[in-house]
Design a protein around this nucleic acid. Structure first.
Lengths: 153, 153
DNA sequence: GTGACATTGAGACTCAGTCTCAGTCTCAAC
DNA sequence: GTTGAGACTGAGACTGAGTCTCAATGTCAC
């Protein structure tokens, strides 16, 4: 934290924009946690914290933070976007449990190298990679097995 | 083609559902091409072909086809879903050009093996993998280079 | 043919995200 | 300190993909 404020401020200055109070509030709230969050989560959180910021401003700020690569947008196919800190993105993908909706992460440097290679082979100039593995997490698999055992018992 | 009709019919029978005329029209239209498409594309296409099917029925049929694994849903973060034939999915990922929006594909068996391994390591029971590479395609890179050369000339 | 239940289309609805606009703020120039 | 250009804000209207509802219709086992 602190770093992000500086990067954002520089980006804004470069584009003749200002670091205003609402923008700083949004920035500090986002980088005060390490969770995946949705715009809605953030708006609710700001409201609860007694520093409400309007929906339009939140969306505008999220767009700016994505533009300056401090934030990455994700889509898990539920009709809403998830955001996460870009600094945490290096070499990691997501495991999405279709049963409980939990999102976990994995790190694998090999995967990124392979993707970079593939992109170049196809004449593609890559900006970022998204790897998502859909399925069932260990907890839900265990739960389901227990339920099945009970129902046949 | 033909195969899909049979698989779908069996799936419907198993769930005490019927293969009706609108469902068959949707199915045949989808498996008559090899493109990525959106629900909207499909509805428009059906209308143009003189075999209109209502929006609700199209969405319902798409959901059924996804359930019986004939179709796979994709999300490229534009607020709408893309569909593609599941039979064409083996070992392939997508390259999405942020400039022109074109979606191309790549095949790499190594990538799938690596993902399967990662999922198992995390105690995850995977159903499917999604790999998306965002960036700029060869055409758009060339176009952009040309434009830059012209503007500095 | 009948009844139970699946299916349909039209259109109302939902909800995440975008747009508009009038009022406010910022900041460099004077 | 004042001014003016233009950035910024919040409220709420709007958009559009996708879902839901419901009355009418179709399907099929009996």
């Amino acid at each position: 934290m602190g770093d992000e404020v500086q990067i954002f401020e520089e980006y804004l200055k470069k584009h003749a924009l200002h670091l205003t109070a609402p923008r700083e509030t949004v920035l500090r709230t986002i980088f005060g946690t390490h969770e995946h969050f949705t715009a809605d989560d953030l708006i609710a959180h700001l409201g609860r914290a007694g520093t409400p910021v309007s929906k339009a401003t939140v969306y505008r700020t999220l767009a700016l933070l994505s533009e300056c690569n401090l934030l990455i947008e994700h889509d898990f196919g539920q009709g809403k976007k998830y955001y996460e800190h870009a600094s945490e993105l290096q070499h990691h993908g997501h495991l999405y449990c279709s049963d409980c909706g939990r999102i976990s992460e994995f790190y694998d440097p090999k995967l990124n190298g392979l993707q970079e290679k593939i992109a170049r082979q196809e004449g593609f100039d890559p900006t970022h990679f998204v790897v998502k593995i859909y399925g069932r997490c260990a907890d839900c698999t265990a739960k389901r097995n227990r339920r099945e055992a009970e129902s046949t018992a």
